[in-house]
Design a binder for these strands. Structure first.
Lengths: 225, 225
DNA sequence: TTTTGTGAACTAGTTCACAGCT
DNA sequence: AGCTGTGAACTAGTTCACAAAA
């Protein structure tokens, strides 16, 4: 029996897993490619072949949010892209700050992929006096971390990236939470703790390398995604 | 009934999931901290409290590889660290190359966490003539990607990191596979395809940010790890 | 016909709960 | 007593398979 939810309708938060939302982002990127190639419609089967995924999974992921497809036809590429951008909240400018103006923080501030996807890096934050007042190569200013709360309030910062050494990460996370930023992308080793209502995503280089090392050591076999 | 497997014994590859191996790396880091604090033994409960995990999960993860614990006592910290390092293949020097000597590649080459965990970045590779022949700030040489195969054979490279723009990532992946490197950490957007026997781990910034954006847009609530 | 949307079946991963060892 | 190791139960995630729509 068809779900009588209209496309774009909000869904109960608990029911959508992070695995699903990550795949939505992958679908979106693929659809944007198809759109540039002037392809009008795509079936879950074709999309699944592109992405090496199961077609039923794609249909199920999309069906959480509405009935976007047309039976016998598939999905309209441009339309589905627009829906996915809206579902993912990518239909508006998102402002990002990076805490830690070391090599990694600076590199991330200048990463062209951010801007291309609608993320704007408005500032770097650090504690080192000789860094404060400077800018990244592309001109992102480095500010004193003491100013984070004020800047976040003034500029409506959506996401904070943590790119500091491990021993500073928890205190940085607390400053971010105090600044009322509700989403954190953490590149520091070791998970940071944040209260409910603040989403933390860990990108731990060390853990990923260890997992590759295990594969090499044990001769396991597999593929991520 | 006790498993009659001795500690350190190899396990059937298929039975250990990537989620488990990633947690092993987290356990190891935590144990190293306890070891530095001169703590001799730790129970799965205590470890679980540190890491905000379930104690049964920790016991189960460890039990895949042997019986490391002592009933009534817990685990000997130093001994378990040593076992985990061996299981993860971190008991030896691992050599890493980075393909793509842009901002991100350079930053990764100089990332101190690599060396600290026993990974040695031996070279960067790029195609841009003005980059080739130079070095990163910490002195990692930038070589021509045409030399990758030769260097990999000579230096026994374990892991390759992809840090190039999306449109180059698949061809870079093919060069890496041709160089007989069997583990890839991919920072490019879009999953790269590699044959069986080559492990790919994707660290897709765009996907992670989109997932945070979804959380902000929908007001979902959760915590990674 | 093609292809969606979805209940049902299946597979993977987590947590419980307890026997058994120290 | 305390704590591990592990079957059993549970929960989450994926894939199958088919009715319904175009």
């Amino acid at each position: 029996m068809p779900v009588k939810r209209r496309p774009g309708t909000r869904v109960e938060p608990e029911s959508v897993s992070e695995l699903t939302t990550e795949r939505l982002s992958v679908y979106l990127r693929c659809l944007e490619g198809l759109d540039r190639a002037r392809i009008k419609t795509v079936s879950s089967r074709t999309l699944a072949e592109h992405l090496h995924l199961n077609p039923a999974q794609i249909r199920k992921d999309l069906a959480y949010f509405g009935e976007f497809g047309v039976r016998g036809v598939g999905y309209y590429v441009t339309e589905l892209s627009r829906h996915l951008r809206q579902i993912l909240g990518l239909d508006r400018r998102l402002s990002v700050v990076i805490v830690g103006a070391g090599n990694l923080g600076m590199a991330l501030a200048d990463y062209p992929g951010f801007r291309r996807e609608g993320f704007e890096v408005i500032a770097l934050f650090d504690t080192a006096p000789h860094k404060i007042g400077g800018t990244s190569r592309s001109g992102v200013p480095v500010l004193d971390i003491a100013e984070l709360k004020e800047v976040a309030a003034r500029e409506h910062v959506d996401i904070a990236v943590i790119a500091v050494p491990a021993d500073a990460s928890q205190s940085v996370a607390e400053s971010i939470v105090a600044a009322e930023i509700r989403a954190i992308l953490n590149f520091s080793p070791g998970a940071v703790r944040a209260p409910d209502g603040v989403k933390v995503k860990n990108m731990d280089l060390t853990v990923s390398l260890a997992s590759l090392s295990f594969y090499l050591a044990q001769g396991t076999n597999g593929q991520t995604r």
